[in-house]
Design a binder for these strands. Structure first.
Length: 305
DNA sequence: CGCCAGGATTGAA
DNA sequence: TTCAATCATGGC
Protein backbone atom coordinates (compact mmCIF):
# COMPACT_ATOMS: atom_id res chain seq x y z
CA UNK A 1 0.00 0.00 0.00
CA UNK A 2 1.45 3.34 -1.07
CA UNK A 3 0.93 6.33 1.15
CA UNK A 4 2.34 9.78 1.76
CA UNK A 5 1.90 9.50 5.49
CA UNK A 6 2.76 7.08 8.27
CA UNK A 7 2.68 7.04 12.03
CA UNK A 8 5.69 5.44 13.68
CA UNK A 9 4.61 4.32 17.10
CA UNK A 10 7.65 4.96 19.23
CA UNK A 11 8.04 6.00 22.84
CA UNK A 12 10.93 7.71 24.57
CA UNK A 13 11.90 9.65 21.46
CA UNK A 14 12.69 13.36 21.60
CA UNK A 15 12.55 14.18 17.91
CA UNK A 16 13.56 17.83 18.24
CA UNK A 17 16.58 17.14 20.42
CA UNK A 18 17.67 14.27 18.18
CA UNK A 19 17.43 16.17 14.88
CA UNK A 20 19.02 19.28 16.36
CA UNK A 21 21.86 17.73 18.32
CA UNK A 22 24.77 18.19 15.92
CA UNK A 23 24.49 14.75 14.30
CA UNK A 24 22.70 15.86 11.15
CA UNK A 25 22.73 19.27 9.52
CA UNK A 26 19.82 19.37 7.11
CA UNK A 27 16.76 19.52 9.39
CA UNK A 28 14.73 22.67 9.75
CA UNK A 29 12.06 23.40 12.27
CA UNK A 30 8.78 24.54 10.73
CA UNK A 31 6.13 25.34 13.32
CA UNK A 32 5.71 22.06 15.19
CA UNK A 33 7.37 19.93 12.55
CA UNK A 34 10.84 19.17 11.25
CA UNK A 35 11.49 19.15 7.53
CA UNK A 36 14.48 17.48 5.96
CA UNK A 37 15.79 15.14 3.31
CA UNK A 38 16.61 11.47 3.70
CA UNK A 39 18.13 9.99 0.54
CA UNK A 40 15.68 10.90 -2.24
CA UNK A 41 12.79 11.68 0.10
CA UNK A 42 11.66 15.05 1.34
CA UNK A 43 10.11 14.35 4.75
CA UNK A 44 8.10 16.29 7.28
CA UNK A 45 8.27 14.79 10.76
CA UNK A 46 5.95 15.71 13.60
CA UNK A 47 6.09 14.40 17.12
CA UNK A 48 2.62 13.50 18.46
CA UNK A 49 1.39 11.79 21.61
CA UNK A 50 1.18 8.53 19.61
CA UNK A 51 4.68 8.67 18.14
CA UNK A 52 6.29 10.29 15.11
CA UNK A 53 4.15 11.22 12.12
CA UNK A 54 5.94 11.35 8.76
CA UNK A 55 4.68 12.95 5.56
CA UNK A 56 6.28 12.81 2.12
CA UNK A 57 5.47 14.53 -1.17
CA UNK A 58 5.57 11.35 -3.25
CA UNK A 59 3.79 8.14 -2.18
CA UNK A 60 5.97 5.60 -0.40
CA UNK A 61 5.52 1.83 -0.44
CA UNK A 62 8.16 0.77 2.00
CA UNK A 63 9.16 2.99 4.92
CA UNK A 64 12.16 0.93 5.97
CA UNK A 65 14.57 3.79 5.11
CA UNK A 66 12.78 6.06 7.56
CA UNK A 67 12.76 3.59 10.45
CA UNK A 68 16.41 2.91 9.75
CA UNK A 69 17.32 6.61 9.75
CA UNK A 70 15.39 7.33 12.94
CA UNK A 71 16.47 4.05 14.57
CA UNK A 72 12.98 3.54 15.93
CA UNK A 73 13.66 -0.11 16.73
CA UNK A 74 16.25 0.78 19.33
CA UNK A 75 14.95 0.13 22.82
CA UNK A 76 16.34 3.20 24.49
CA UNK A 77 15.71 2.04 28.05
CA UNK A 78 18.02 -0.92 27.49
CA UNK A 79 20.73 1.41 26.21
CA UNK A 80 20.36 3.78 29.14
CA UNK A 81 20.70 0.88 31.58
CA UNK A 82 24.22 0.22 30.34
CA UNK A 83 25.42 3.71 31.29
CA UNK A 84 27.58 4.06 34.38
CA UNK A 85 25.43 4.70 37.42
CA UNK A 86 26.91 8.01 38.45
CA UNK A 87 25.77 11.54 39.14
CA UNK A 88 26.85 13.17 35.85
CA UNK A 89 25.23 10.51 33.64
CA UNK A 90 21.98 10.58 35.64
CA UNK A 91 21.87 14.36 35.24
CA UNK A 92 22.69 14.24 31.53
CA UNK A 93 19.97 11.66 30.86
CA UNK A 94 17.46 13.52 33.04
CA UNK A 95 18.11 16.68 31.03
CA UNK A 96 16.95 15.04 27.80
CA UNK A 97 15.39 11.60 28.30
CA UNK A 98 14.42 10.79 24.67
CA UNK A 99 17.62 11.81 22.94
CA UNK A 100 18.61 9.28 20.26
CA UNK A 101 21.23 8.53 17.68
CA UNK A 102 20.32 8.56 14.00
CA UNK A 103 21.73 6.22 11.38
CA UNK A 104 22.75 8.27 8.40
CA UNK A 105 24.08 7.55 4.95
CA UNK A 106 27.86 7.03 5.22
CA UNK A 107 28.79 9.32 2.33
CA UNK A 108 26.57 12.19 3.46
CA UNK A 109 27.82 11.79 7.01
CA UNK A 110 31.49 11.59 6.01
CA UNK A 111 31.23 14.59 3.69
CA UNK A 112 29.30 16.59 6.29
CA UNK A 113 31.87 15.96 9.00
CA UNK A 114 34.81 16.72 6.68
CA UNK A 115 33.06 20.06 6.23
CA UNK A 116 32.50 20.42 9.96
CA UNK A 117 36.11 20.79 11.03
CA UNK A 118 36.76 24.09 12.79
CA UNK A 119 33.25 25.26 12.01
CA UNK A 120 30.27 25.87 14.19
CA UNK A 121 26.96 24.15 13.61
CA UNK A 122 25.25 27.16 11.97
CA UNK A 123 28.04 27.46 9.42
CA UNK A 124 28.15 23.73 8.72
CA UNK A 125 24.43 23.85 7.95
CA UNK A 126 24.98 26.77 5.61
CA UNK A 127 27.81 25.10 3.69
CA UNK A 128 25.84 21.87 3.29
CA UNK A 129 22.72 23.75 2.14
CA UNK A 130 24.75 25.52 -0.55
CA UNK A 131 26.43 22.27 -1.61
CA UNK A 132 23.06 20.50 -1.99
CA UNK A 133 21.40 23.41 -3.80
CA UNK A 134 24.20 23.68 -6.31
CA UNK A 135 25.12 20.07 -6.92
CA UNK A 136 22.35 17.85 -5.57
CA UNK A 137 19.61 16.30 -7.71
CA UNK A 138 16.19 17.96 -7.26
CA UNK A 139 13.69 15.78 -5.44
CA UNK A 140 9.91 15.69 -5.32
CA UNK A 141 8.20 18.21 -3.06
CA UNK A 142 4.56 19.15 -2.67
CA UNK A 143 3.52 22.13 -4.77
CA UNK A 144 3.47 24.57 -1.88
CA UNK A 145 7.02 23.78 -0.76
CA UNK A 146 10.30 25.29 -1.95
CA UNK A 147 12.64 23.12 -4.05
CA UNK A 148 14.60 20.42 -2.26
CA UNK A 149 17.78 18.65 -3.22
CA UNK A 150 19.39 15.33 -2.48
CA UNK A 151 22.88 15.29 -1.01
CA UNK A 152 25.24 15.25 -4.01
CA UNK A 153 26.81 11.85 -4.71
CA UNK A 154 30.59 11.29 -4.61
CA UNK A 155 30.47 10.91 -8.42
CA UNK A 156 28.86 14.32 -8.78
CA UNK A 157 31.28 16.06 -6.44
CA UNK A 158 34.22 14.31 -8.10
CA UNK A 159 33.33 16.17 -11.29
CA UNK A 160 33.18 19.70 -9.88
CA UNK A 161 36.16 21.99 -9.37
CA UNK A 162 37.77 23.00 -6.12
CA UNK A 163 36.83 26.61 -6.88
CA UNK A 164 33.14 25.65 -7.17
CA UNK A 165 33.36 23.92 -3.81
CA UNK A 166 35.11 26.90 -2.24
CA UNK A 167 32.24 29.04 -3.51
CA UNK A 168 30.06 27.06 -1.05
CA UNK A 169 32.13 28.71 1.72
CA UNK A 170 33.93 25.55 2.76
CA UNK A 171 37.40 27.10 2.51
CA UNK A 172 40.36 24.80 3.13
CA UNK A 173 38.02 21.82 3.48
CA UNK A 174 37.31 21.87 -0.28
CA UNK A 175 40.38 19.86 -1.36
CA UNK A 176 39.66 17.22 1.32
CA UNK A 177 36.06 16.82 0.20
CA UNK A 178 37.07 16.67 -3.45
CA UNK A 179 39.79 14.09 -2.80
CA UNK A 180 37.43 11.90 -0.75
CA UNK A 181 34.74 12.12 -3.43
CA UNK A 182 37.22 11.15 -6.14
CA UNK A 183 38.65 8.21 -4.21
CA UNK A 184 35.18 6.88 -3.57
CA UNK A 185 33.92 7.53 -7.10
CA UNK A 186 36.97 5.78 -8.57
CA UNK A 187 36.48 2.79 -6.30
CA UNK A 188 39.77 3.32 -4.48
CA UNK A 189 37.99 3.82 -1.19
CA UNK A 190 35.04 1.60 -0.31
CA UNK A 191 32.58 3.01 2.20
CA UNK A 192 30.68 -0.30 2.42
CA UNK A 193 33.83 -2.20 3.31
CA UNK A 194 34.19 -0.08 6.48
CA UNK A 195 31.04 -1.72 7.79
CA UNK A 196 32.69 -5.13 8.00
CA UNK A 197 35.77 -4.02 9.89
CA UNK A 198 36.27 -4.04 13.64
CA UNK A 199 35.95 -0.61 15.25
CA UNK A 200 39.64 0.29 15.49
CA UNK A 201 40.40 -0.79 11.93
CA UNK A 202 37.37 1.05 10.58
CA UNK A 203 38.57 4.16 12.39
CA UNK A 204 42.09 3.85 10.99
CA UNK A 205 40.69 3.33 7.51
CA UNK A 206 38.56 6.49 7.64
CA UNK A 207 41.54 8.45 8.97
CA UNK A 208 43.47 7.66 5.80
CA UNK A 209 41.25 10.23 4.08
CA UNK A 210 42.48 13.81 4.07
CA UNK A 211 40.63 16.09 6.44
CA UNK A 212 39.56 13.17 8.62
CA UNK A 213 41.18 13.14 12.05
CA UNK A 214 40.14 11.08 15.07
CA UNK A 215 37.16 13.20 16.03
CA UNK A 216 35.63 13.25 12.57
CA UNK A 217 36.25 9.52 12.09
CA UNK A 218 34.45 8.86 15.39
CA UNK A 219 31.47 10.95 14.28
CA UNK A 220 31.12 8.95 11.07
CA UNK A 221 31.56 5.62 12.88
CA UNK A 222 28.86 6.56 15.37
CA UNK A 223 26.34 8.46 13.25
CA UNK A 224 26.51 6.45 10.01
CA UNK A 225 27.91 3.00 10.75
CA UNK A 226 26.35 2.37 14.11
CA UNK A 227 29.59 1.69 15.99
CA UNK A 228 27.99 2.38 19.36
CA UNK A 229 31.30 2.40 21.15
CA UNK A 230 32.68 5.30 19.07
CA UNK A 231 33.06 8.35 21.29
CA UNK A 232 33.72 11.62 19.45
CA UNK A 233 35.25 14.21 21.75
CA UNK A 234 34.60 17.76 20.62
CA UNK A 235 35.07 20.87 22.76
CA UNK A 236 31.67 20.49 24.42
CA UNK A 237 32.18 16.87 25.34
CA UNK A 238 35.71 17.61 26.52
CA UNK A 239 34.42 20.39 28.78
CA UNK A 240 31.74 18.08 30.12
CA UNK A 241 34.20 15.27 30.79
CA UNK A 242 36.78 17.53 32.44
CA UNK A 243 34.28 19.28 34.67
CA UNK A 244 32.15 16.30 35.58
CA UNK A 245 34.75 13.56 35.89
CA UNK A 246 38.05 15.36 36.46
CA UNK A 247 37.02 18.49 38.37
CA UNK A 248 40.19 18.90 40.41
CA UNK A 249 42.79 18.59 37.74
CA UNK A 250 42.65 18.54 33.98
CA UNK A 251 43.03 15.08 32.52
CA UNK A 252 45.50 14.75 29.67
CA UNK A 253 44.30 13.85 26.19
CA UNK A 254 45.69 10.35 26.67
CA UNK A 255 43.97 9.86 30.00
CA UNK A 256 40.69 11.15 28.59
CA UNK A 257 40.96 8.81 25.63
CA UNK A 258 41.49 5.85 27.87
CA UNK A 259 38.58 6.96 30.05
CA UNK A 260 36.09 7.35 27.18
CA UNK A 261 37.15 4.01 25.71
CA UNK A 262 36.54 2.06 28.90
CA UNK A 263 34.24 3.83 31.34
CA UNK A 264 30.96 4.30 29.46
CA UNK A 265 30.26 0.74 28.38
CA UNK A 266 29.06 -0.85 25.13
CA UNK A 267 26.88 2.13 24.14
CA UNK A 268 29.46 4.79 24.98
CA UNK A 269 28.46 6.72 21.87
CA UNK A 270 24.99 7.24 23.29
CA UNK A 271 26.48 8.42 26.55
CA UNK A 272 28.59 10.86 24.57
CA UNK A 273 25.48 12.23 22.86
CA UNK A 274 23.83 12.86 26.24
CA UNK A 275 26.92 14.60 27.57
CA UNK A 276 27.17 16.70 24.42
CA UNK A 277 23.57 17.83 24.66
CA UNK A 278 23.85 18.43 28.39
CA UNK A 279 27.00 20.55 28.06
CA UNK A 280 25.41 22.59 25.29
CA UNK A 281 22.11 23.35 27.00
CA UNK A 282 23.82 24.41 30.21
CA UNK A 283 26.60 26.22 28.31
CA UNK A 284 29.41 24.77 30.36
CA UNK A 285 32.15 27.17 31.33
CA UNK A 286 34.31 27.97 28.33
CA UNK A 287 37.48 28.20 30.33
CA UNK A 288 39.48 25.36 31.78
CA UNK A 289 37.91 23.17 34.40
CA UNK A 290 37.82 24.75 37.82
CA UNK A 291 36.48 23.27 41.05
CA UNK A 292 33.92 26.08 41.33
CA UNK A 293 32.57 25.40 37.85
CA UNK A 294 32.34 21.72 38.63
CA UNK A 295 30.48 22.37 41.85
CA UNK A 296 28.01 24.53 40.00
CA UNK A 297 27.38 21.77 37.49
CA UNK A 298 27.00 19.16 40.19
CA UNK A 299 24.41 21.38 41.89
CA UNK A 300 22.54 21.59 38.59
CA UNK A 301 22.85 17.83 38.33
CA UNK A 302 21.48 17.32 41.83
CA UNK A 303 18.56 19.68 41.23
CA UNK A 304 17.51 17.70 38.16
CA UNK A 305 17.04 14.46 40.01
C1' DC B 1 55.45 23.53 19.24
C1' DG B 2 52.76 27.70 16.96
C1' DC B 3 50.42 29.50 13.28
C1' DC B 4 47.31 29.56 9.58
C1' DA B 5 43.47 28.46 6.33
C1' DG B 6 37.11 30.24 5.80
C1' DG B 7 33.65 32.80 8.27
C1' DA B 8 29.00 33.44 10.94
C1' DT B 9 28.07 34.08 15.40
C1' DT B 10 28.74 35.06 20.27
C1' DG B 11 30.09 37.60 24.14
C1' DA B 12 33.29 40.71 26.22
C1' DA B 13 35.34 45.35 26.34
C1' DT C 1 30.27 49.49 18.29
C1' DT C 2 34.58 47.24 17.68
C1' DC C 3 36.91 43.03 18.33
C1' DA C 4 38.66 38.69 19.84
C1' DA C 5 37.32 33.87 20.40
C1' DT C 6 34.89 29.90 18.68
C1' DC C 7 35.49 25.26 16.01
C1' DA C 8 39.52 20.90 15.32
C1' DT C 9 42.46 19.21 10.48
C1' DG C 10 46.75 19.27 8.20
C1' DG C 11 50.74 21.56 6.31
C1' DC C 12 54.45 24.29 7.16
Amino acid sequence: MSATEILLRVREYDLAATLDSGQAFRWQKQNDSWVGVIGKHRVRLTQTHAGICAETAAPVENWKWLREFLQTKIELEKVLKTFPDDEPMRAAVAACPGLRLLKQDPWECLASFILSSTKQIVQIRQIIALLCQRFGDPIAVSSSEPAAFAFPSPEKIARVTEAELRACKMGFRAPSLLAAAREIAEGKFNLEHIRQLPHSEARAELMKLGGVGGKIADCVLLFAYGFDSAFPVDVWVERALQQLYFPRRRASGKRLQNFTATYFGPHAGYAQQYLFHYARIYKFDRRDAKPQGANKILRVAASLR
